[in-house]
Design a binder for these strands. Structure first.
Lengths: 341, 341
DNA sequence: GTGAAAGCGCTAACAG
DNA sequence: CTGTTAGCGCTTTCAC
């Protein structure tokens, strides 16, 4: 019984006698033997590690996406190494590390903060790479249609009769925030409502401004300037919390004097009754994991850009009818596959 | 210039001429050379991977703890592999995998769900193991004093004049929930308040009952039975949300007719104004990471059991004074070091 | 100071 | 079907 035979059995290779196979399996089980994955990787010239690079945002978004990735990779034999990138510069370092030193088979990069930091460096990578929540022509990406989300939110406000619709956005350098803003402007244009700079404020700072405090300050800015919007689209639920706080300070309550639409639909915040645009976070993760597996199996696959559609979820901040009950308006998912350039 | 010399330089070993060293460094940098970590691990007979086993709870708790671990390990050269244990049985499998197949240098196991599932199996491990949020004599552990937290919460209610204090707890098989309950009973005893089964309800199900729905159902049960508590301690903020919802349905508002104290102090829920017992989640993680590093450096260290003290944070559900403002009553941290048995 | 050589634990031809 | 023989890329004695 040679070591080679054992290897064959453990890897379910054909040319082994049934008797030998059983004997090996039996002994291996008895000894609690586990192949050394590093040695395997070295000999096979392929890793069983997949890196997930995420920004240090303490957000629920990351958690859900990670869950999706993890689930989709559960039976694949790959283990997941998480690289939390604290700062922007850190993201670059983390990425390089995960790519080279860690010898991952593939990498999932979540969120645009990271992408913009990595920039061109990302291009020369030979590993399988999937982008989540950010887009780049050279890599597969799984994103949410933020423009459409912004449009839906704004349209909802228009349909409710709002005529002075404000926008509280996060740091404009964050692609999702920027895109949601674009949707807002598109909707205004489509419904013949004027765009006014004084109705728009962006919150910056920690987590690209996706914070309660950021939302609060941005809304204060608008209100302090004397503007009195009758509706406001906020680029995240967390910020919407701050917007509501600012509104309350000015004696404005939702949905009466001010209708508010957020973005994300964070489960933990459902009780707050914020009308919002739901992102399929878990799904983004599982799609990314699935695609990574496909690409790992065939590196020559054409680039795939999946764009998931967000849903409007109506709650208390825009509607008094059946308060507490969740109405949904799911829309179809659009997938765009494009060949290489 | 041999491969051995290069290895020496890259590992900062002494016996190398300065000139050679610089030349190697220069070329390495130019080529963007990165040592293959698997090969290193194999040759050195030691891993650079640390496994973190977490329950699949979609909770903020895990995220914060992970952040703490990650930060404390940032400059150590270790990478983190995350093992999400979906089900209880899964936890065991994940653990075995992380321990053997993955050849981790060390493991951090978060949360008791996982521990109870692993049980005795964990004992024969030779790897460095740190437990977070659960305790076992054979391993280092970092926990929060849940009994004390439960006591503090209940005492706070007593001091506010409550005489019929209810308890809404999660699945009693969850150690944290159980301990918080113990603290509740201790406080009742100390302040000469009778304990009544009809004032206690536990929520079970998903995530060990640490859910909004779980809290809602448990509170409904108490209220439906005709009990009219004037205060309630809930074993988590998420559950407290459900408790408040149930109370509202019965026309009880906080803090007027019913004072509510939760547990956790989840940042995302601060706006809800729930008085709560704060857990230092991030700190648990960074302590765990730090301790792991210590143990990795010296396996013969005596067992260390760190018990962090939680803090009472008074908010709107128990106080009308200065609503919105956060008062804190931090208490000292207690650390208990015990030798091996 | 530096190089040659022997593995680390496993896989993958290549013979038998 | 099974054993032998090379490595995978790096570290580490042990000579020189």
């Amino acid at each position: 019984m040679s070591i080679a035979t054992v290897s064959r059995v453990l890897n379910n290779q054909p040319r082994v006698a049934q008797a030998t196979r059983e004997r090996v399996l039996h002994v291996a089980d008895e000894l609690g033997y586990q192949p050394h994955s590093f040695a395997q990787s070295l000999a096979r010239r392929q890793s069983n590690l997949i890196s997930v690079v995420v920004p240090a945002m303490t957000s629920y978004f990351f958690l859900e996406v990670l869950r999706g990735i993890q689930d989709s990779l559960a039976d694949s034999g790959y283990d997941i190494v998480v690289h939390l990138a604290k700062a922007r510069k850190d993201a670059e370092v983390q990425f390089e590390r995960s790519l080279r030193r860690g010898r991952s088979a593939g990498v999932v990069v979540i969120s645009p903060t990271v992408l913009s930091a990595i920039g061109h460096r990302i291009e020369r990578a030979r590993t399988a790479i999937i982008l989540v929540d950010c887009k780049h022509d050279d890599f597969d990406s799984i994103t949410v249609d933020n423009v459409r989300g912004g449009f839906q939110a704004t349209r909802h406000l228009v349909e409710l009769g709002c005529e002075r619709i404000a926008l509280v956005m996060a740091d404009p350098s964050s692609p999702p925030a920027f895109d949601r803003c674009s949707g807002y402007r598109e909707a205004l244009a489509k419904f013949d409502l004027p765009y006014s700079d004084s109705l728009v404020a962006s919150s910056t700072g920690t987590d690209d401004g996706f914070t309660e405090e950021g939302g609060y300050r941005a809304m204060r800015k608008i209100l302090d300037s004397g503007e009195r919007p009758d509706g406001v689209f906020v680029t995240s639920d967390v910020q919407a919390l701050g917007v509501l706080r600012a509104a309350t300070e000015f004696g404005l309550s939702a949905p009466g004097q001010l209708k508010v639409v957020g973005f994300d639909d964070i489960p933990l915040l459902r009780h707050a009754g914020i009308t919002t645009i739901r992102q399929p976070m878990y799904r983004l993760g599982s799609l990314a994991g699935g695609r990574l597996l496909e690409r790992l199996a065939d590196a020559k696959l054409p680039r795939l850009h999946v764009v998931e559609a967000p849903d409007l979820v109506v709650r208390g901040t825009t509607s008094t009818a059946r308060a507490g009950e969740v109405e949904q308006f799911p829309e179809a998912v659009s997938v765009a596959a494009m060949g290489d350039h």
